[in-house]
Design a protein around this nucleic acid. Structure first.
Lengths: 205, 205
DNA sequence: GTCTATATGGGGATAGAC
DNA sequence: GTCTATCCCCATATAGAC
């Protein structure tokens, strides 16, 4: 079927549920709810409506499930930041868009976001090394925009590295408390955080 | 001995290591490193130089250890925020101090901070209810300062609730990546975050 | 208050039938 | 590719000696 080829832009996941993908979805729910160490493979299997043994036909280990989720999540996040960094020739607008869209991504994908941000230490050293690359790329893109803005004279930033981390903190920490059923929408968070970012870099209207 | 009465201001913990306190210190290290679910009582016992059974002479369950750590940590954090909120009659200075000192607290106590911020869901419902009160108090103090500043006309804040959460995110998220052995000092983080907070509320110099 | 030993249950992962 | 059954290890917590 052609429909099995469509993929979700935020997660890179097949929308039609092959067994492998259904297990990944179940693992996302389980890891986001109970954490990696607090999740049993029996829990994942039962969320996917399968027996415990079926998990291992599609994924070698529990940690492989985590790595696949973390890798897709990080790749999606890098794409969001890259696109925002290319959205305007103006570094000020780049920073606004990066923070707004990165915040929106964490709100819309808050369950994957929790896993991406909080389960880094649960990966094997080899897997952690690959994920660390994605994180360095994200930090570098933010720092580059700040340095370009300072160079252009449209921002006032005394500590580009520290300010880049602060802007990322603003965009990330919401996964700690955000719930889709709450009153705040991803649009509202994106707009507020984008405005706060402009102020933080000394470029507010 | 008199020295057994001295307590650490940040954690409320006895500095001279009674067995009960040594176990709490060991649990902080273990929970901060491996998470609550990823920590075994054997790990805690061995870090404290004791047998697994000795843990239960001093603490009823593993979750009781987590609750005691979380309660002390939250109470310490509330005190820091309260003191900063009373440090000046000027709401602008209050906000600067609250963000600077709350950020400093998370840097200095980054291991306890991780547990405080990330292991809330591992508490029993009863314990979670008590901890939730401390969190509400912290958010209310920040929101009150923002509303006072808007009232006084010295801040420009369109969304006090969302901005309060953003200021707390800035102060908290650093526990995700901060390491005492890194290049950045708690003083530097406090200073930078305090300055960023002024800009975020539209009160920068 | 500490230990060794253990009760009791659950966890990741595999074997082998269908 | 799914199941049932199970291996083997480890977890929390307790029993009882010292």
């Amino acid at each position: 079927m052609l429909s099995t080829m469509t993929t979700d832009s935020a997660t890179g996941r097949d929308r039609s549920a092959s067994t492998r993908e259904r297990l990944l979805d179940a693992a996302v729910e389980a890891f986001a709810t109970s954490g990696f160490a607090g999740t049993t493979t029996r829990d994942i299997a039962s969320r996917a409506g399968m027996s415990p043994a079926a998990v291992y036909v599609h994924h070698a280990t529990k940690e492989d499930l985590l790595f696949e989720i973390s890798r897709r999540g990080h790749r999606s996040a890098v794409q969001i930041i890259e696109k925002a960094s290319q959205s305007s020739p103006d570094p000020v607008e780049q920073v606004r868009n990066m923070v707004a869209e990165f915040s929106r991504w964490h709100a819309v994908n808050s369950r994957v976001g929790r896993i991406v941000q909080y389960e880094f230490d649960a990966l094997t050293p080899e897997h952690r090394a690959e994920i660390a690359e994605y994180r360095r790329a994200i930090e570098a893109l933010m720092r580059d925009a700040l340095e370009a803005g300072v160079e252009a004279g449209t921002m006032t930033v005394s500590d580009a590295k520290g300010t880049a981390l602060a802007l990322l903190s603003l965009s990330i920490d919401l996964v700690r408390w955000y719930h889709p059923s709450g009153a705040t929408t991803p649009d509202e968070i994106a707009s507020l955080h984008g405005d706060l970012a402009l102020r933080m870099v000394g470029a507010a209207a």
